[in-house]
Write a protein that binds this DNA or RNA. Structure first.
Lengths: 130, 130
DNA sequence: CTTGATCCTCTAGTGGCTAGAGGATGCATG
DNA sequence: CATGCATCCTCTAGCCACTAGAGGATCAAG
């Protein structure tokens, strides 16, 4: 059972050009080509692409994903690196959340003080200026 | 009292090329030039740049900041737009926080299940693949 | 046989800067 | 007054992870 790029895209819920892009940067291997030069994928490609997509959704960079795929491709290697990557990613996410919560606080104060007059007296503008 | 671009950068805690960039995209007006062609700023530029910097830190896009600056420049205009922008920004931030909290949960599970064996049995890899 | 979807390659654009080349000027020290 | 280093100028290119579009070939359905 083989898939066209369009079917692969649907199967992994990724856009077609994104697949070509991942191939270009080496996250996906160059697939076989049919006689008409079209890319032909197998089920392994769906798994790999889903892996990438999931990792991207978790905020892993392409570089991190490259490492994770590398480990996934070499199951006999120790997985310390994968743990480290996940831990670092968790740190990043927690830092981002903390920062966004600060922003949320400030924005809430701005929004709560909503004014209906002229910009001259606008709390939002004021908050940004001050 | 006037400032060089370097002093303005220090005063507003922004890098020099960023100032030139903001000028290029029209967030900052073209400043006067000294005889030697160097940019010369006044105190108003510090306020404007600080406004921009603060808004960027809050996650406002350049387009949103353009609108906010426009309002700030025309204080007789109603400030409904500023309120709307702030509200939208707050929504965005809250959505981002919610998404990141989901990711955090997943990453925490991955990290908690840390394994010390081979990648073949790695929970992190497994979680990404599954 | 025609229509519309899908595929191909290639180039350029997005946002918000950042880095670097290559050169002119300014300021402090010897 | 010379030296050397900081700062300034313009311009181009790069970052990340895609996305959009041109221009053309091929395919499947009616």
């Amino acid at each position: 059972m083989t898939l066209s790029i369009g079917l692969l895209a649907k199967a992994a819920d990724v856009k077609v050009p994104t697949i070509r892009f991942y191939e270009e940067i080496g996250l996906l291997p160059e697939p076989q080509r049919a006689a008409n030069d079209r890319r032909v994928y197998d089920v392994g490609a769906v798994r790999r692409l889903a892996f990438i997509r999931h990792a991207r959704q978790l905020g892993f960079s392409v570089e991190a994903i490259r490492n994770l795929l590398d480990l996934s491709d070499n199951p006999e290697r120790p997985c310390g690196e994968a743990n480290a990557l996940a831990a670092r990613q968790l740190d990043d996410v927690e830092a981002k959340i903390a920062q966004l919560e600060t922003l949320r606080g400030e924005l809430r104060r701005m929004v709560a003080a909503t004014c209906d007059g002229r910009a001259a007296d606008c709390r939002v503008i004021e908050a940004l200026a001050g």
